[in-house]
């Protein structure tokens, strides 16, 4: 589903973010991407939805290279991929419902589809009762759940999350991770970049560890080493 082949990235300012990183994520997997700050986790995530291009190497999504996409093909890639950020990135002037519906409007879904689908995902993330609340009326965990609902509303095959629990307390973090796990059980491939050692260790999922831009470990049912 996702393949990185000898991917390197050097930013224009000379910062070497990634060095020769190769891995493969299969359909339906749940993968944690861990490592200290500046190890290159965000770069990997951003490359997946083609916000960044590698300096060298190849990236395949769904068996197709995403490096030579034409501008007009990038939106198609992103429609197959939900993205969740640490800072939620909700539109503050729209309600939870409208934020989720927005993602469907953008891909020109029919109004009846929107009316049917948005309540479904709201229920799935447990926020049916919060549909008409604005982001500032919601807690951090609730906002992140709205963001996840928005990410999955168009039924993407892949969901990538960059530090989704970075701003949340432990209990709320667990709710978010369980929600992601739930989505994974329905067949969506999930990649989560995180710092949260406890979650990674407890979840026993596959773990990719980055250090200084290099992939240093790739462990099934992994944990985070103390020294990492």
């Amino acid at each position: 589903m996702i393949q990185f082949i000898n991917v390197s990235k050097v930013y224009p300012n000379g910062n070497k973010a990634l060095a020769d990183v190769s891995f493969q994520v299969d359909k339906g997997e749940f993968v944690f991407l861990v490592g200290p700050s500046g190890a290159g986790k965000s770069t990997v995530i951003r490359m997946m939805f083609r916000e960044e291009l590698p300096t060298r190497g190849q990236i395949m999504i769904g068996g197709k290279s995403i490096l030579r996409l034409r501008r007009s093909e990038i939106p198609i890639l992103r429609r197959n991929m939900g993205v969740v950020f640490q800072d939620y990135r909700l539109l503050s002037d729209r309600t939870a419902y409208e934020n989720i519906a927005f993602a469907m409007q953008v891909v020109e879904a029919a109004p009846w589809e929107i009316r049917e689908r948005v309540p479904q995902v709201l229920e799935m993330v447990g926020l049916s009762h919060r549909a008409d609340h604005y982001p500032h009326q919601l807690s951090g965990g609730e906002q992140q759940r709205v963001a996840i609902a928005r990410a999955i509303v168009n039924n993407p095959r892949i969901l990538v999350a960059d530090e989704p629990t970075g701003n949340l307390d432990a209990e709320t973090s667990w709710q978010i991770i369980h929600l992601l796990n739930e989505i994974n059980k329905r067949g969506t491939t999930i990649v989560v970049a995180t710092h949260n050692r406890e979650i990674v260790t407890t979840m026993r999922k596959r773990v990719l560890t980055l250090e200084g831009g290099a992939l240093v470990r790739d462990v099934e049912r992994g944990t985070v080493r103390r020294e990492a």
Binding site: R71, S72, P75, I76, R78, F102, V106, V107
Partner: peptide, 10 residues
Amino acid sequence: NIMKYVGATD
């Protein structure tokens, strides 16, 4: 920005 992430065309 958000429109781009969810796959809006230019």
